[in-house]
Write a protein that binds this DNA or RNA. Sequence first.
DNA 1: TCCTTTATTGAATGATTGCTCAATTTCTAC
DNA 2: GTAGAAATTGAGCAATCATTCAATAAAGGA
Lengths: 201, 201
Amino acid sequence: MARHARYDRKTALEKAVGLFWEKGYHGSSMKQIEQALDMRPGSIYATFGSKDGLFSEALAAYAEQGGRELAVHLKGFDSIVDGLQDYLRGIACSCGDGGAAPSRACMIVKTLLESSNTHSALADQANSILAAIEGSLADLVEQARVKGELAQSVDSRRLARLLQAQIMGLRSMGERNLDPQAMKDLGDDMAAILAGYRTQH
Amino acid sequence: MARHARYDRKTALEKAVGLFWEKGYHGSSMKQIEQALDMRPGSIYATFGSKDGLFSEALAAYAEQGGRELAVHLKGFDSIVDGLQDYLRGIACSCGDGGAAPSRACMIVKTLLESSNTHSALADQANSILAAIEGSLADLVEQARVKGELAQSVDSRRLARLLQAQIMGLRSMGERNLDPQAMKDLGDDMAAILAGYRTQH
DNA sequence: TCCTTTATTGAATGATTGCTCAATTTCTAC
DNA sequence: GTAGAAATTGAGCAATCATTCAATAAAGGA
């Protein structure tokens, strides 16, 4: 056997997520990556293959983390719709304050918009992640519909896409640095949209 | 006096908009710009000062064009709200087909997300353009409220921000290459959101 | 202790980046 | 026709880009 890797792969990926999420693919140079990961080029290439490979793994890690956060969030609610509404409000809130996140906008959307006409492999990855998220949201909406929280007539995939578009818009608006109250209002308004699909009684 | 400029500034800017909108700031190299504008570096720098200067002018031209398109669109409607609803549906439709536009997402949003943590001058410009658009939308909403199309209780700036977030989300979703029917449904759903703010009777 | 194996290092690679400027071309005014 | 002003050209600049690899360091097994 031989020496251990000095770097923890998972920790390095977290740092890569931080940099790429903040500055994007083109905006992050290998020099900045070396500094952020505290690794020399040889180690980075031995571990992740290429800048593309590192970005791809970072994007996947980001998406997985985001999925976990939504799931954890919903655990705190009996009602799925209540949970989704609070999730929207939570995003609006965290976009309002001067939070510690590298960026307010979603890294997946940033990647999609940056790479859609310049780097098809990245765009494809971002697109399939977004399709998976749409699927998860559709499952949640369908569960809520079956539970009777939402009107029986609701088309779950369609409402999932509307919901995803809300999140994209909300987090993109976050990048505008509006005052916290404006963001909070926006989150409330989006939560109210979802309320419009609730069972009427 | 001396010789004329061989290039029409306005035409060159239109071509620059096409390239930058498609590929973004970092994704467009000077070599590609030279090719797109059919100009040599010296002419480009004599005319626009720098890549930054050219991008900045292109972004402004894009925003002006977008503003004109919204105004023209609304001219075709007696009701402002009808016009805004049709505007949303129109975006959804043009995002659905394989249109000729360089990109489905909004160039201003692409710029904001790309530059927010790497190029503050561009981010500031994108932000002030978005603030101006928010203002225009707020004016329209306020007019509609005064005309009685919208409920008296409507907060026009707040609804303008919700509307702007819808457009951002809609056009970002366009980059996902969903099938046309899904985009059309999304546009209809967003138009329905606006309907919820109409005067009840 | 030495040998094998593996991880790390960082100088150096060729390509590409945004950009400059002396030379050339093209037009107007006289 | 000619002089002068302005616009265009494109080779070439220094800097930076992502990437490579021979040399070095560090660990476990014998």
